[in-house]
Nucleic acid binder design. Sequence first.
DNA 1: GTCTATATTGTGATAGAC
DNA 2: GTCTATCACAATATAGAC
Lengths: 185, 185
Amino acid sequence: MAAERRQGTRERILAIAREEFAQRGYSGTTIADIARRLGTTTAALYYHFTSKADILDSLLAEPLAAYGRLIEQTAAASMPAAALLAAYIDFTAETRELIPVIAADQSAMRALLDERLPRSPEEMTAAIIAALAGPQPSRAATIRAHAAFAVVKEATLAALATSDGRLAAPDRDEILTAALRALSE
Amino acid sequence: MAAERRQGTRERILAIAREEFAQRGYSGTTIADIARRLGTTTAALYYHFTSKADILDSLLAEPLAAYGRLIEQTAAASMPAAALLAAYIDFTAETRELIPVIAADQSAMRALLDERLPRSPEEMTAAIIAALAGPQPSRAATIRAHAAFAVVKEATLAALATSDGRLAAPDRDEILTAALRALSE
DNA sequence: GTCTATATTGTGATAGAC
DNA sequence: GTCTATCACAATATAGAC
């Protein structure tokens, strides 16, 4: 509480917004909700941010750019599947607090994703699947690629939900092993 | 088009709403959007449904009840993991058109889920994980259970996205095999 | 069953004082 | 930096004619 008050107001707004957006969704959260938890009025928010969308953008711009870089890197170098999956586990763990913001209100994110990602979310997922499935993949290999990607995304979040916020090394190994098993023929 | 016009107006509204909700999210879709695609006015919709929430409820009530029954069944009988995972693949395939409605605007679904599910979504997921992880599961076994569940959810949707709408038997086998591999020690 | 017109409310955003 | 006051608009919903 004391620590929270020592932060700049801007940072406190972002922290509150992150929690509210994750719980109620971006559309379901009002500026008034954030202002009330901050202990001020809606007008005060507009001194720190130009709009509600600006708050969302401030939260997600950097992580989305990082996600974009990760994809470019994946597409360029031909990474082994294990390295690629490990990279996604680590990325998910690092951005764990922001993933629920996107998941809670996917459709409201559309505009932001179009602006902040180098390619459409669908194309980016397709790039990952292609990298995991290998050249000239069979239909079965493509399905296994989807399976492995699903594992790194969801099992990582599940492991983090019952931990102190850091991903323990044994958990990371277990997730990676499970993903590689799902990918194997 | 001719076939669409032969349906009752109520059914046409539901079909349009399903598409719009899946694309723009429940919050992001207005009654006016639906009315425009229907070729009428918003007032006309209120002859067929009592509210916007009533449209959502009419779409999802039955599938959510079915999901609830599936969980009860899972918790009661001690199903083998393979049977349980297969049941979830089939359930996902059967309700494929409605899953995007929920996914697009998760937080807006909260009220409906509370009303239409026997337990909270979190508890229901926990029941599935418990059934997959077995009695007195290690942390690793719990992670593998999450991994297997992620596979049946996401790989099934991925397979359906590139098919005629039905889940082909070889695809179903491939998904089940990948899930069981992710679950295996 | 569908229309026009309108009531009502919620919410993002701004003006201007302090 | 924050306040009071208020605007503008969009969206759900209703009344009553046809």
